[in-house]
Design a protein around this nucleic acid. Structure first.
Lengths: 154, 154
DNA sequence: TATTGTTATACTCTATAACTATA
DNA sequence: TATAGTTATAGAGTATAACAATA
């Protein structure tokens, strides 16, 4: 049966918020680091982009600078991230994970993954493969903000 | 290749927040109704479950009653939902969409679906079918709060 | 003047705890 | 006493607008 983009969008719009709510709830309920999903995403980004600026984080996470500033502020206060002015351009910030930040990220990742894995055990292996395949299909078309913007236009 | 629950969880944790951010952003940017994702979900639920109680909504959306109460309150204030005591059991509420509520929901749905569909057009039909299948697999294992709770235990 | 980031302000989402009204 | 909802309170996420500091 042919699946129209619209039908597909319908399913995605129905199910993705549902899964997201679980991720959020489980991550929140994990007492130790008590990281929220957006905070977690900042840590993951910094783990892969050590020394990124606030604008880098905002851009890659699709947030505004003020929102990002507030969130980073919280992470700094909690000792998970360091924030220092760039020596060459003192307007810019150099953000990096502390070792606690690294640990908190790993811990949250593991905990949340375990919770999800527990649910995903309900599926037979072949169906898990379908889910993985779908995620791999969705990833490239949802990265980096705008739909109509291609690399060549950048 | 066998996919472990853990690998599958990894992919889901990576991609779902990505898709969700797009949904959120696009829904927010749709000026007219200006519905948020959670509000939208309440309207969708009420469209399919006319006369549902507040607990019904809370249960099916996986929210606590106070959160739901606040959100419904906002929707009532904006004229999108009616809230009346049930005549048989006056503790219960009877919630329903107004015609504006219906219109706002349809409008938001159409707008957001169009945005998603635009991105999903990038996939060939067979891959869209994979995505739909994955959503259908995920739905039942992420509905209604707890992972380990089955109907028989309820 | 343009860029980077922050502060001020304001909403919404969401939870827990304590409460009211009805059964 | 148990159930349905609400109110109070609190913290996070997010945005826009206005601002400060640096280039």
């Amino acid at each position: 049966m042919p699946i129209s983009p619209d039908e597909c969008a319908h399913e995605v719009l129905d199910v993705v918020p549902l899964v997201m709510r679980t991720i959020r709830t489980e991550m929140r309920s994990h007492r130790a680091p008590g990281l929220t999903v957006p905070q977690f995403r900042v840590l993951v980004f910094l783990a892969r982009n050590d020394g990124a600026s606030l604008s880098d984080v905002a851009g890659h996470l699709g947030l505004t600078p003020p929102s990002t500033s507030v969130m980073v502020d919280g992470l700094v206060t909690r000792g998970l991230v360091t924030r220092r002015p760039d020596s060459r351009d003192r307007r810019r910030l150099t953000l990096a994970l502390t070792s606690e930040g690294h640990a908190a990220m790993e811990s949250a990742r593991k905990f949340t993954r375990d919770c999800l894995a527990e649910r995903l055990e309900a599926l037979p292996e072949s169906e898990r493969a379908t889910v993985v395949r779908a995620m791999q299909l969705l990833r490239p078309i949802f990265v980096s903000g705008k739909a109509e913007e291609t690399d060549s236009e950048k």
